[in-house]
């Protein structure tokens, strides 16, 4: 726990330093790197625990998500979104969903995000001007709403009653494999599967029609 919180604190200090004293980035970075090494040396046992890695991935995920929202340049946003997706793929792995983790990387990071990158580059979008958090009633209202929503979610999760503690090792070997998912997809959810294929065709035709140069 010390290691995790320490690392988070180090990153926070580095960010603050880059913001307020951009000229001294290199010495501050070197000092903080030394602090990190010290932290690892102090609590290296924690490196082997699942909680540490989960926490670290979660921290990265939240940070990258925030940057997606905050960063004025769409290209940067896309790259941080890809980082976020990788984090979630790691979460899937922790949750014994190996197949999901794989297709998360292949489909999301590999296909959908490429599409985003292409479009951003195709349109040659500049950094958004006038991006102000807390500017205007609707934006500040949105932040307030977001906080309220998060609070509600926390409250709900806290009060969902006693939940069992799971040992990932105790799972049967078929859970989360491609074979397991495939069996479900082609038996119980076959209709939905076929419907999804039609949806994809429709989306493909729609995209082609919409993106054609002349709508005629």
């Amino acid at each position: 726990m010390v290691l995790l919180l320490g690392l988070i604190a180090v990153v926070a200090v580095f960010a603050l330093a880059r913001t307020f004293v951009p000229a001294r980035t290199v010495p501050v970075g070197a000092a903080l790197g030394a602090v990190m090494v010290a932290l690892v040396a102090y609590d290296h046992q924690e490196l082997a625990s699942l909680e540490f890695w989960s926490g670290l991935i979660g921290f990265v995920a939240i940070m990258s998500a925030l940057l997606v929202v905050i960063h004025p340049n769409p290209m940067v946003s896309v790259l941080f979104l890809i980082l976020n997706l990788f984090c979630i793929a790691l979460f899937f792995l922790i949750l014994n969903a190996q197949f999901l983790a794989v297709i998360q990387v292949i489909i999301y990071a590999g296909a959908i995000m490429v599409l985003f990158v292409f479009v951003v580059m195709l349109l040659n979008l500049k950094a958004e001007e006038g991006l102000r958090l807390g500017g205007g009633p609707q934006r500040s209202g949105a932040v307030v709403l977001g906080v309220a929503f998060a609070a509600l979610m926390f409250y709900a999760i806290r009060n969902r009653g006693a939940a069992p503690y799971f040992e990932p090792e105790s799972f049967d070997s078929g859970f989360g494999t491609a074979r397991g998912i495939g069996r479900l997809l082609f038996t119980r959810y076959q209709f939905a599967f076929e419907a999804a294929s039609i949806l994809l065709i429709a989306a493909m035709i729609g995209a082609v029609v919409l993106a054609k140069r002349k709508l005629r």
């Binding site: 995920a61 998500a65 997606v68 929202v69 769409p74 979460f91 985003f116 979008l125 609707q138 949105a142």
Partner: peptide, 21 residues
């Protein structure tokens, strides 16, 4: 974690004006 990410996404939808974002 999911709730936090969801909230961030929501706020992002409301705050940003760039359709791609």
């Amino acid at each position: 974690m999911a709730a936090l990410l969801f909230t961030i996404g929501c706020v992002g939808v409301l705050v940003r004006r760039n359709a791609i974002v």
